[in-house]
Computed example of a mutant assay.
Amino acid sequence: MTANLSRRKLLIAGSAGAAGLILPGRALAAEMPEMAPLTMISRNYLGTTGCGLYYEPTEKVSSFSFNSTFYNQLNEWRKYMDTNAPSGWGWPARIYSYGAYTDKPGMHGEGRAFDIGKIVYLNASGVPKIISMRYDLWKNSGDAATYQRRYWATAAGYMRWFRHVLTYKDNTQHHNHMHVDNQVYGGGAAAFNTGSSSQIYIVQGACRYVWGLGTGVDGSWGPETQGDSTAVLRRIGRPSGSITSAANFTAFCTASLRKGLGTQAY
């Protein structure tokens, strides 16, 4: 990559796509001088050393480079996942990823995207509970229903904190990981856009696989999706309005996470 490559060209591409592992301490500014003002950090844990970061293809502890603001937002999401999982699960002890910063255009090129393969919770007895984003591995397994429920619950929880969450329904490139970035919002200022197929997939997936409704998962907003998501809102105690309300949307996301992980039955 040449030093005079414009910032506009670097940002043309979308945020989707798996990221590669970056070596610890590799400086973003050395690769993309125009992005030098971004503060980058390298970490092999998320927020606490009790939550290690692992490279999914090798399953070894690895350091990833992040934009510092995005890293802090991911840490808030991790604490949210900890708080809303069943108490018997323990804590998110390991997060397996395909990467954060990588030398490519888009949000990965700014260290503002993360590709997650699975989360492993461990309780005090060392018993693991796994949330897997590896649709490519479990889609035809005997445990597919459990994996589906946890997958879409986690996607909903992720969407509570970040606008761009890409799932296996978006394209085949995301069959082995879930992508998240903070290009639009990060840190919890959640909003729902009926024109976003990625968000609609997650709402539909949660309605179908978490709440047991017959919702089609096609990425299109229509009467069925509106009606089913509203039915979920009424079930969780939201007295009025639809998922297009920011308060209702955040309530839907958190309730779907808790329901799908088995924290609360509603």
Results as ranks from 00 to 15, higher is better:
L10I: 05
Y135R: 10
G109A: 13
K129H: 15
D103H: 08
E76T: 15
G47C: 05
V61L: 14
F114M: 01
S62V: 08
A19C: 04
G262N: 10
Y135H: 15
R150K: 13
S97P: 03
F66L: 11
Q199C: 01
T49Y: 09
T254W: 04
T102M: 01
I41G: 12
I12G: 00
G52N: 09
S132F: 06
G205L: 04
A190I: 07
M1D: 01
G14D: 07
Y121W: 11
W221L: 02
Y168M: 05
C207N: 15
S229H: 06
P86I: 02
I131K: 13
A206S: 15
E34H: 04
D82P: 05
K129N: 15
G186N: 14
R160D: 14
R112H: 03
M159Q: 15
S198A: 15
S245L: 09
G241E: 10
Y168C: 06
I95Q: 03
H164Q: 11
Y71E: 05
Y158E: 02
L137D: 09
N176V: 00
H108L: 13
S125H: 05
E56H: 08
G186S: 07
N67T: 06
K169S: 00
W211R: 07
T69Y: 11
S141A: 13
W211H: 00
I116M: 15
A85G: 08
L213A: 06
A251E: 13
A18I: 03
Y101G: 00
L38Q: 10
Y147M: 07
L166F: 11
A251L: 03
F192D: 00
G90Q: 13
V180Y: 00
N171H: 07
P33N: 12
R134A: 13
Y98P: 04
L53G: 07
G188W: 00
T58L: 10
S132M: 05
G212T: 06
S240K: 14
A36Q: 10
A189N: 14
V61Y: 04
M35W: 09
W138G: 00
G117D: 07
S197H: 11
Y209Q: 11
G262S: 10
G260W: 08
G195I: 04
D170R: 01
